[in-house]
Amino acid sequence: MAAGGGAALMRTVLILGARAPVALDLARRFAAAGWRVIAADSTACGLSARSRAVAATLALPPPREQPLAWAAALAAGVREYAVELVIPTCEEAFYLARYRERLPDDVRVVVADFATMRRLHSKVDFIATARETGALVGVDVPATRRVHSLAEARDWAGGEPLVLKPEFSRFGVHVRLYPRGLPKEAPALPEGAWAAQRFHAGRELCSYAVADHGVLRACSAYRPAWRLGDSASFHFAPVELPAIRAFTAAFVARQRYTGQIGFDWIQAADGRLAVIECNPRATSGLHLFAACDPLPATLAGDHDGPVLVPGHRRAAMLGAMMATAGLMQALRSGRAREWWRDWRSADDVITRAGDRGPLAGSLHDLLAWRRQAKARGVGLRAAATGDIEFNGEALPS
């Protein structure tokens, strides 16, 4: 879609990861705030591209396979569109951090330095980084160790409840929960580094925040009420826990962190919180802010007021997923009344009055990823995210 009249007078934001619902959400917020929005990605991105909020789209090479070409194309796009603000949403954030110096100095890039990003992405190194902050604010940080075999994990756990997960992973993929300890018949670990972590029982929670040079600027938290198995959620019920905000504020201050950041949490039956991993990028807690909340100004570095928190208590959801996978889960598990209550209490992230193109765009993206998955002999999730995943590897200069 071409930019409307007067676009030359607008400030321009480039939103990366246009395939993601959080990118679509940001595009609508920035457009409503008077910005010209450019959406960029290296795969099918009809979800955002078909939104009325997006003025133009930028096709990029896949950063995981062609990081230098990706960085060059990004820099060219920033100059072509006179971009003054770049916001990543998915794991392209790591590549953006690595190649930040390729962009003009006067462009604001909402991302931390690469060394910090990599450390926080590691499910082992993050725990070591978070331990002092947890002790300071009264949040538990579970004992965690890097292991390379099941025998090593077994020796370390000593029969205690255990979680095993790849050191660099996302969406809960390949996580193994052993609340009664590691059984003898547990399958061997695939090659690579894994995080062995003490198991904490309780309610799963997630959070989202924006920080600027160590100052917490925005914070939200939610319960993943409905999800695909043990993986990504599609219904986000807001929660308000002062301990989450206190930990986040203290953590970003200690790291002098700039950018978006999320944490995964376990809340025990007695209410005590444990922080179990970090996502140094956007998370679905972004959806909980009201349309009138100044999130664009916060991300642009223009909001200096108190910490921004969601201005309403409505839940958010991916409506199509809730109406299909969610409803099927509800009918199979006898939770139809709970599903109906949660459906009525949530706003759809994808479809908006006057901007329904993203729904068709999301179906286009899904079909494209299915074709890729079949051609490459991989699963749908790998086809949808494999081009941007970062697993701790060294990146070329």
Rank of each mutant, 00 (worst) to 15 (best):
R198L: 04
E204A: 13
L182N: 00
R170A: 11
D212G: 01
A232M: 14
Y208R: 00
L216E: 06
P179V: 00
D212T: 12
P161D: 08
A143F: 10
S233C: 12
D140E: 15
C219D: 10
R217P: 02
R176F: 01
A153T: 01
V215E: 15
G158H: 11
A193D: 13
P166R: 04
A218R: 01
A193P: 07
A151H: 08
T144G: 10
G202I: 04
W226I: 03
L228Q: 14
R176G: 05
V173S: 14
V147E: 09
D140W: 07
S231Q: 14
A221T: 02
H200T: 13
P179K: 02
P179L: 01
F199V: 01
F171R: 11
P166Q: 00
A221C: 02
A195S: 13
V141W: 08
P179F: 04
D155M: 13
P224R: 05
V139H: 03
R198F: 03
D212I: 11
L205F: 04
A225D: 13
D155T: 15
V163R: 04
A193I: 00
D230V: 10
R217M: 09
L189Y: 10
G181M: 07
V141R: 03
A201V: 00
H200N: 11
G159Y: 10
F168L: 00
W156L: 06
A193C: 06
R203A: 09
D212L: 15
L182R: 03
A186T: 08
L164H: 02
R223L: 12
S169Y: 03
A196Q: 07
R180F: 11
R223K: 13
L205S: 01
L162D: 06
A153K: 05
A195D: 03
L228G: 09
A186D: 05
S220M: 07
P179C: 06
S207D: 09
A153L: 09
L177F: 15
G159D: 08
G229W: 11
E185R: 12
L205D: 02
V147A: 10
F168H: 07
L216N: 05
V147N: 09
L228M: 14
H213K: 15
F171P: 02
A218P: 04
A225V: 08
L162A: 02
C206Q: 08
H174C: 12
Y208S: 06
R170K: 12
F234V: 04
V173H: 14
